[in-house]
Amino acid sequence: MFFYLAFIASGAIGGLTSITQLFTSLANRSGAPVLPEIVKSLGIDLSAILVFTLLYTRENKAKNAQLAKLSREESLSKLKLRVDQNKIISVSDLRGISRLVILAGPAAYINESYKRSEYVTEGLLERGVLVIPFATDGNYFEFASEDSKVDLSIDEKKKRLWQLRPIYIEDWSNWIAEQKKLANVSLESPVYLSLRLDGRVRGSGTGYPPWNAFVAQLPPVKGLWSGILDGMDGRVL
């Protein structure tokens, strides 16, 4: 961007010089450069100013968009979560540990998302996925096993996957509303956002999260590739 400004300044100086020469040539003063050459030089200078101004504007917009995105992600990192009755953490405390999936919608949407995740619970946990259910209608999602004969070990894994609870609801509501506004999504639409291990937004969408796609796309957090691929879960939004 510095060089773009330098080229714009250079073109402006060259353009002023060409304009001065143009007036001199039109006045038919002795020693004035040939008129076609002056016009050609002026055209080059003006073209350079236009091109580099457009490039600078594009880069400046991209920079501002990046800064705004980083600001939103920083705001997200400060939001609070309850792990259990005795422990409250920030979203940032889970960076490098878990891939968070934020669900925002009415309780019915949260409950259906939970049911759709049951068959891939182990796969999600192996990839460090933890769910943050945010019920926008004021109802709270509570884990409950519908089958009394369910394997207790599987039951505990489901609880672990869905154990996080957002607190300071107004802060969460404001952050999610801002994301919907920026994405031109209706405030009433249920949405999900998936985060990378580094805490940046990896994907988002309306409707139910693609649990099976998460299992297929994300590498396990333990094993041969643990550490090497930390945070490298695809491009960020």
Rank of each mutant, 00 (worst) to 15 (best):
F141W: 06
S145Y: 01
E156Y: 12
W162Q: 07
F134R: 04
L195Q: 08
W175R: 00
A144T: 03
E178A: 12
E170F: 03
Y192H: 11
A135G: 15
K181M: 13
P133M: 00
L197Y: 08
L193V: 06
L187D: 10
K180N: 04
D147W: 00
W172F: 01
L161D: 00
K149R: 15
E178P: 05
F134Q: 04
K157E: 03
L195V: 05
Q163E: 10
D155N: 12
K180E: 05
K158F: 02
K180C: 06
A144D: 04
V185T: 13
D171R: 05
E156P: 05
K149S: 15
I176R: 10
I167P: 00
W172L: 04
R165Q: 06
E178M: 11
S148D: 10
K157Q: 10
R160H: 13
W162C: 10
L197N: 04
W172V: 03
D151H: 09
Q179T: 09
A135S: 15
S153A: 15
Y140L: 14
E170T: 05
L164C: 14
N174A: 12
P166Q: 03
F141V: 01
Q179L: 14
N139W: 12
V185H: 09
Y192V: 05
V185W: 11
Q163H: 10
D137H: 06
